[in-house]
């Protein structure tokens, strides 16, 4: 139980996917212009991450012990089809949510956080439960980082930024400061 808790905290804060591993930067910088969409996209990504963790575990246990070289190809196929499948389900069950997510949903396929998570979970030989907790932490961590950046970006729109670093340059510097703040969490482990 203790172990699971640490996996969760570590993927949520200490080893935050975006701010320390640089995974999923494209949506992090591309979509974080408003708080609301950031939150929605974060939630959708969390969902896909959890499904992927489940699929990765199934693949690892039943297919990849026989053919380890198929790892990348099979993961990417599974991720692409999962995203497609989720898209269809959401479209059927809740057209409102589907319209709100729009283009971001299919783009989750090329979010490297998803493939990164599958590979991490494999490398650390996580079991099913550990993998799921890890995915949940990573997804929520991604959401937190996105929402924080979106909030800061909305503020920086109102302030007087020099023309040369307006736009992405400014966002990257903000992300750097955020990342510095998150490094403070690294002390959590030694405190216990």
């Amino acid at each position: 139980m203790d172990n699971l808790f640490w996996i969760f905290i570590s993927s949520l804060l200490i080893n935050n996917f975006v701010l320390t591993y640089f995974l999923g930067l494209c949506p992090f910088l591309g979509v974080s212009s408003s708080l609301e969409t950031s939150f929605r996209l974060g939630m959708a990504t969390t969902f896909v991450l959890i499904i992927t963790a489940l699929c990765a575990w199934i693949l690892n246990t039943y297919l990849l012990i026989y053919a380890p070289y198929l790892r990348l190809v099979s993961f990417i196929v599974v991720i692409a089809s999962t995203v497609q499948f989720i898209e269809m389900v959401i479209k059927k069950l809740s057209p409102v949510l589907f319209r709100a997510l729009g283009i971001f949903l299919p783009l989750i396929t090329t979010n490297c956080a998803i493939l990164g998570l599958a590979i991490f979970a494999t490398n650390r030989s996580y079991g099913l439960v550990e993998g799921l907790i890890y995915a949940l932490g990573a997804g929520l961590g991604f959401t937190i980082a996105m929402v924080l950046l979106a909030g800061l970006r909305e503020e920086s729109e109102l302030s007087d930024v020099p023309a040369l670093i307006q736009g992405t340059a400014m966002n990257l510097i903000i992300a750097g400061i955020l990342s510095m703040a998150f490094m403070g969490f690294a002390g959590l482990f030694s405190a216990v």
């Binding site: 320390t20 040369l164 670093i165 340059a169 990257l172 510097i173 990342s179």
Partner: peptide, 25 residues
């Protein structure tokens, strides 16, 4: 040390983009 840690990477990339803007101008 900051330069090799993640924050340094973000900020340096931001500065690179700014540099590109200057050269383009």
């Amino acid at each position: 040390l900051l330069a090799v840690l993640p924050p340094g990477a973000f900020m340096l990339m931001g500065l690179f983009l700014a540099l590109k803007n200057i050269v383009d101008e």
